Amino acid sequence: MNRIVNLFDTNPTDQPGQGLLNVYFTAGFPALNDTKKILTALQEGGADLVEIGMPYSDPVADGETIQKSNEKALENGMSVKLLFDQLQDMRKTVSIPVLLMGYVNPVMQYGIENFCKKCAEVGVDGLILPDMPMDVYLNEYKSIFDSYGILNIFLVTPQTSEARIRQIDQASEGFIYTVSSASVTGSKSGVSTDMESYFNRINAMNLRNPRLIGFGIKDNATYVKACNYASGAIIGSAFIRVLEESKDLENDIRHFVQEIKNPASAVINA
């Protein structure tokens, strides 16, 4: 069974304010060879799954913080091939689900089947490709993803129609990435009343797939609020800022995750 599917099957998230935490970071940032170090520290801190960004020159869905991390990673020399090299022995120490997030062009250049095969070889469980059209995926690539056991995670936004959401739900396995607003990543507004209405609307649809809420999740308060409306939350920009400012990378990562999920524990362990 895919690790992502197994995670949601074995972790009931029906308690208010409790849920799974997915943490995003950009491969090759802050330093080129930090990938495995960050992955391990996230697992030790208590992250439930991890989303590794494949740096791209034009990350249109991302705000300034993640854009700058992409630029720095590319300057450092990160590439898809190098990332796979860095993840080669990942499963010797990392047991939590790992996804790769990025844009479809580098994946196409690598070759869809070669990319999925390499993901399976190193232990990547799923992909998030926001600019992959769903009809293209279903008609041309789903059979390849399925043959290698790789999940393709779709995004929904407040502007996504009910018909489209239901289509995504039928085409999905694992979870649905619920974008909290129409803005780019790194929003500092938190979870607004309008967002809550949107989350309630999706919950009323009784979809078969669990959902994780992303964009605007930055601390324990926004994490808890998101968990009241979904199976968990995704944090990206706030974590990138921690990496950018860190003086003790592994300890700072563990402390950050603990502060998001359980602030009382983080104080005790500080």
Results as ranks from 00 to 15, higher is better:
Asn2Met: 00
Arg3Phe: 02
Val5Met: 13
Leu7Met: 10
Thr10Ala: 11
Pro12Val: 05
Thr13Asp: 05
Asp14Val: 13
Gln15Pro: 14
Gly19Glu: 04
Gly19Leu: 00
Pro30Cys: 00
Ala31Arg: 14
Asp34Asn: 03
Ile38Gln: 06
Ile38Ala: 02
Ala41Glu: 01
Leu42Ser: 07
Gln43Glu: 13
Gln43Ser: 10
Gly46Asp: 04
Ala47Pro: 06
Leu49Gln: 07
Val50Arg: 06
Val50Phe: 04
Met54His: 08
Tyr56Ala: 09
Tyr56Lys: 09
Val60Pro: 05
Val60Trp: 00
Val60Lys: 02
Val60Met: 06
Ala61Gln: 02
Glu71Pro: 12
Asn76Phe: 01
Gly77Lys: 08
Met78Asn: 12
Ser79Arg: 10
Leu82Pro: 02
Phe84Ser: 03
Gln88Arg: 15
Arg91Trp: 07
Pro97Ala: 04
Met101Arg: 05
Val104Ala: 13
Asn105Thr: 08
Gly111Glu: 08
Gly111Arg: 09
Ile112Trp: 03
Phe115Leu: 01
Lys117Tyr: 12
Ala120Gln: 13
Ala120Tyr: 11
Ala120Cys: 11
Glu121Trp: 02
Val124Asp: 01
Pro130Ala: 07
Pro133Gln: 00
Val136Asn: 12
Tyr141Gly: 10
Asp146Tyr: 12
Gly149Asn: 03
Ile153Thr: 07
Leu155Tyr: 08
Val156Glu: 12
Pro158Tyr: 03
Gln159Ile: 15
Glu162Asn: 11
Tyr177Met: 09
Ser180Asp: 03
Ala182Gln: 15
Thr185Phe: 01
Ser187Trp: 09
Ser187Asp: 12
Ser189Glu: 14
Val191Glu: 05
Ser192Asn: 08
Asp194Arg: 08
Asp194Cys: 07
Met195Glu: 06
Met195Cys: 05
Phe199Asn: 03
Asn200Cys: 12
Arg201Met: 11
Phe215Leu: 01
Thr222Ile: 06
Tyr223Trp: 02
Ser231Asn: 12
Ser231Ala: 13
Gly232Ile: 00
Gly232Thr: 01
Ile240Met: 03
Val242Tyr: 01
Val242Phe: 03
His255Gly: 09
Phe256Asn: 10
Ile260Gly: 08
